[in-house]
Design a binder for these strands. Structure first.
Lengths: 276, 276
DNA sequence: ATGTCTTTGTGAACGCGTGCACAAAGATGG
DNA sequence: CCATCTTTGTGCACGCGTTCACAAAGACAT
């Protein structure tokens, strides 16, 4: 997932909790599906199931928006679609620019989920001069030189960065200087932006790494207690019950890990040696 | 974000908070960058800045892994890279399959961030027979018929779904039946899986919708008070003034709206105080 | 050794999000 | 109109995550 940085520390956006805001698009998606099937009303239980959340949570979320339901009946689908759309600001058109038209940028340009939610791709921008003019998703790629003009002419306030990591901050700075106040960042870098600019990030490899963590844990549990770790140190240290509340092998002091580090990291990094 | 898995704090299994796990890849990324610059040690303050988090949070996160720092000095970069990699399960190779080789699937296949973290794309799978054999990212696309065999032969436990929404659940079921226990879902649908299977989802349009919400809020605030940032004012006024949120009822309310004309939480109110 | 300085590791307080459980509100039927 | 039934809206309690603040631990200089 992505976590928006650059918020005021303890300010709730107009009283709607951030966690609720993050779920509104989920509800909207489920409601749109119901709407297409011409379902007139839906109970909190049904809608919650369709959105993959708890029904109590859904009702509480909706309570922040107002009382849009009818007790004993449920929620009017069309009306709720409209209310959530309005709350999310989707009743207006949002022009966006995509900067960095590589594989991912091109995929984003072709992604149908944007247009169907009121996001209009105003321009595709890339730093490669050879790419200028090349049609991607039926739209010619424009050079970075045009960035400021494009943003100004189209009144763009949302930018998508899908450049390599090295170029992301520079692109970000130019976008912000040109008036962009919301950024969706696909580059694996932490962007620093001034106050008032929102950044949300999507890092594909981070999601996989989180899955890998749980996958490893599942494999370890299934295999039994300690075999998987293959650390003789762990078992030995487990006997003397260290004071730390963390696990046994964690008690192995940094200076003493020589035997356990014969494994090579995925990035080609050499296992660490702690200076004494 | 993932499935609402309820895991018991039971036994003495190492209880690393989910929130911490989600940040470990962030730290790892920052540490890898430091490692490439041959930086020997970092303080929690420096590393936290590089990762875009609070230093106290970082220290607490690391405390769940063990005591890997040296007081008065900081953390050994190489050693920490190894420890976090191990914790995340990245010291082993994770074969993954990508199902649905459209624009997004192809972009994922070409994404370098996977391989550099120990994720090896074992196969690209698509339901379109015409696409079978077509090379994508230097690898021939295979037909869905081969799905079970591919997963079995390669010992794949992580699957990526980048199919259209309509096919996602079906693909998911086949993946799970074939032995997949972790799924990264890019399709805009709620997947239902049995216990023991982890699902994380990435929805590109959801992120944009969340940005739109905050963007709308910023525009509204700005119109009510004087410009705080003073950048977007000209642009907002020049284009079409997206300030229109005060007269929602008159706009275009779909049919079947109730007569609940009472103003509750929604807009219309000028923000009261804004703690700096 | 002793003292000073830096930085970690963590106890504790706080705030947010979640889920339970139930009263209120409206629909429906007699 | 009254009774019953369904479903919403929400007060409340609980647990997790975040942050503060400081003692403990080690480095380093004298």
């Amino acid at each position: 997932m992505a976590t928006g940085r650059t918020h005021r520390p303890a300010t709730r956006s107009r009283g709607i909790p951030e966690a609720t805001v993050a779920r509104l698009p989920l509800y909207l998606r489920a409601l749109t599906a119901l709407s297409e099937r011409s379902v007139p009303t839906v109970s909190s239980e049904e809608l919650a199931a369709a959105a993959g959340v708890n029904s109590a949570k859904l009702r509480k979320d909706f309570s922040y928006l107002g009382s849009y339901g009818t007790r004993g009946v449920g929620y009017d689908v069309e009306y709720l679609v409209y209310q959530i759309s309005r709350e999310l600001g989707l009743t207006q058109d949002w022009p966006v620019v995509i900067v960095g038209i590589g594989n991912l940028g091109a995929a984003l340009a072709n992604y149908g989920g944007f247009a169907s939610r009121g996001f209009r791709v105003a321009a595709l921008i890339d730093a490669d001069p050879n790419m200028a003019g090349t049609p991607v998703a039926g739209m010619p790629v424009q050079h970075t030189d045009e960035l400021e003009k494009i943003i100004d002419d189209n009144g763009v306030s949302i930018g998508v960065i899908s450049t390599p990591a090295g170029a992301a901050q520079q692109v970000c700075d130019r976008l912000v200087a040109a008036g962009i106040t919301s950024i969706l960042n696909f580059a694996p870098t932490v962007l620093s932006v001034p106050d008032g600019v929102d950044v949300r990030k999507v890092d594909l490899s981070i999601e996989l790494q989180i899955l890998a963590f749980h996958e490893q844990r599942k494999a370890g549990e299934e295999a039994g207690a300690e075999a998987v770790v293959a650390d003789a140190v762990a078992e030995a240290a487990a006997a003397d019950a260290p004071v730390a509340e963390s696990d046994a092998e964690a008690a192995a002091p940094p200076a003493a890990r020589a035997e356990t580090t014969d494994r090579k990291g995925p990035d080609g990094d050499v296992p660490a040696v702690m200076p004494a």
